[in-house]
Design a protein around this nucleic acid. Sequence first.
DNA 1: CATTGCAGGGCGTCTAGAAG
DNA 2: CTTCTAGACGCCCTGCAATG
Length: 285
Amino acid sequence: MLFCPNMKLIMVAQFADGSKRMDMVHVRCKQWSCPYCAPANARTWKDYILKRLSREDFSGKSWVFVTITAHEDSHKISPQATLRNLQRGWGKLYHRLKTFNGGKAFDYIRVFEKHENGKYGGYHMHLIMSIGDAFALKKDEFAQVLEREKTARKQGKRPRKRLKREKHPARWIKDACRACRMGYEADMKQIGSVTTKVASYMTKYISKQLEILEFPPRMRRIQASVRFGSPKRRKTGNARHWMPRSAIYKTDLEDYDLIFDMTRKHVISEDDFPDGVLWYPKELK
DNA sequence: CATTGCAGGGCGTCTAGAAG
DNA sequence: CTTCTAGACGCCCTGCAATG
């Protein structure tokens, strides 16, 4: 697919230096349901994630990767029900994780993936969260509690009653997913803070987003915390003045030395106006 | 056992910003 | 632009551990 089929409009820009050159781009609808725009959105997101993770306010953070399935009951209803279950479950889980993270807000990116073999084609959720430090700390504390009990037992002392029911943090997250009425935590990894490695955990799944056509209206395909943000809209350029147009006309070839289609990366020539067609691209207008 | 202190989590409200 | 989602935050209730 060469350009967005949903928008029948192009934008053209000329150069201020008076050179006889014109550039054009195809306006696109930017919707995830569009066969042209979905891969374009995915590329934009991949680039953004890598850049954002490298920025100084995120570069030092340690990340954890988790895969969570939807509750088994939602799988009996519909694929959309599994998405709703995961959305609702995340709302609850976020609060618990914030406490887990020492009361501090953390950042995350979540993506959804359709089960390969699910009878009803439900979804599960992959996410990375910047709770790596809290996770490592709790893992340490847990190991210390076990160690203290072990030495006490060796010395013949009756193990003191645990002050709290200590849990390994991985176990804690598993239980929390269940308590938030989702399915099971199917996978969990401490990723660390190497930017490219962290990014690859998410970008891997972003291509798979394209196969998803069942999202409820307005549901974000890629959900990230507010601080993580999302790809910004391009600022209206001040270097060149872009004007809307319905097409490039055959007569434009006489007025310009070069007309370049930036979307298709294609220099427009006589060949683009075959057999009485007077405008370009011929699929539009 | 009853009492108390308090962390954790549910829920309602407000609103930034994403979707369309 | 308008609509609406979901994160931030504060209030309050619940349940658990500590204490006598």
